[in-house]
């Protein structure tokens, strides 16, 4: 038996919206430690890693670790049946092999309870070991600013160059019709009065050129949190981390370009 209760369905709805453009089907792992998933996009250029810790749920029970395969488009449709403020219960019974994942949504005044279930699927997916790394540069910035920059530069070109120095981070793109760039200067302290401030921890200047279509997908996670951190080292995948308050994170990894 697995059973996880989230105080607000809206968090899970936003998570699925953040993932479904990049990934159509994924295995979800349930364990004593919580719920996690790792999946690559169909081209194996981007990797997504979600973690929801057990103690971030209103209640959490997992008698035996289970891996359940879901179609994220179907899950997204199902979650549209939940009110944002509904309490959401996810449960599955593994006595005879789980073939469906069940959801119940209870309104704040407890007067309405709806129940839905999602058929599970067998998914044979490659998984990778993500090494712990010290990055050369970590940019911490507003997630809405990140979304805006990606949207603005997508009107100019197909790739963005992200150049991080001690002074700031510059996003630039060029295409047939022209070019554009946005420079965000490093602020010494990110406090409550400067929600849009950017801070950069850096050992040495780093630059990456990345496809904007993947970053547009990653930006779908912006509604989950006010901040995003971009972790960069030359010649290794760039990691974009969106922390989900009190419960976990979504991390996206994007493979860099390599010399032919």
């Amino acid at each position: 038996m697995i059973e996880a209760v989230l105080a607000q369905a809206s968090i899970f709805k936003k998570i699925v919206e953040a993932l479904k453009e990049l990934i159509s089907e994924t295995n979800i792992d349930f364990s004593e430690a919580g719920i996690s998933l790792q999946a690559m996009d169909s081209s194996h250029i981007a990797l997504c890693n979600l973690l929801l810790r057990d103690d971030g749920f209103k209640s959490y029970r997992c008698d035996r670790a289970l891996t359940l395969g879901v179609n994220l488009n179907s899950l997204s449709k199902l979650l549209k049946c939940a009110g944002n403020d509904d309490e959401m219960r996810i449960f599955a019974n593994d006595d005879s092999g789980a073939d469906q994942l069940n959801f119940s949504f209870e309104s704040a005044n407890s007067e309405r309870v709806s129940e839905f279930s999602l058929k599970l699927m067998d998914i044979d997916a490659d998984s990778v070991d993500i090494p712990d790394m010290d990055y050369q540069a970590i940019i911490d910035m507003s997630s809405s600013e990140f979304s805006r920059i990606i949207r603005d530069l997508s009107s100019v070109g197909e790739a963005v160059s992200i150049d991080a120095t001690k002074q700031g981070v510059k996003f630039s793109s060029a295409g047939d019709a022209g070019k554009g760039s946005i420079l965000l200067k490093h602020q010494k302290s990110v406090d409550g009065d400067s929600a849009l401030a950017t801070s950069i921890e850096i050992n040495e200047p780093v630059s990456h050129s990345l496809a904007l279509k993947f970053l547009s997908s990653f930006a779908k996670a912006a509604p989950l949190t006010d901040r995003v951190s971009i972790h960069m080292t030359e010649d290794v995948p760039v990691m974009f981390e969106f922390k989900i308050s009190e419960i976990g994170h979504i991390r996206f990894y994007l493979a860099p370009q390599i010399d032919d």
Partner: peptide, 14 residues
């Protein structure tokens, strides 16, 4: 010339 890398070229398959 540069080509787009894949995740599996950087992280070992688990």
């Amino acid at each position: 010339a540069q080509a787009q890398g894949k995740i599996g070229e950087f992280f070992p398959l688990g």
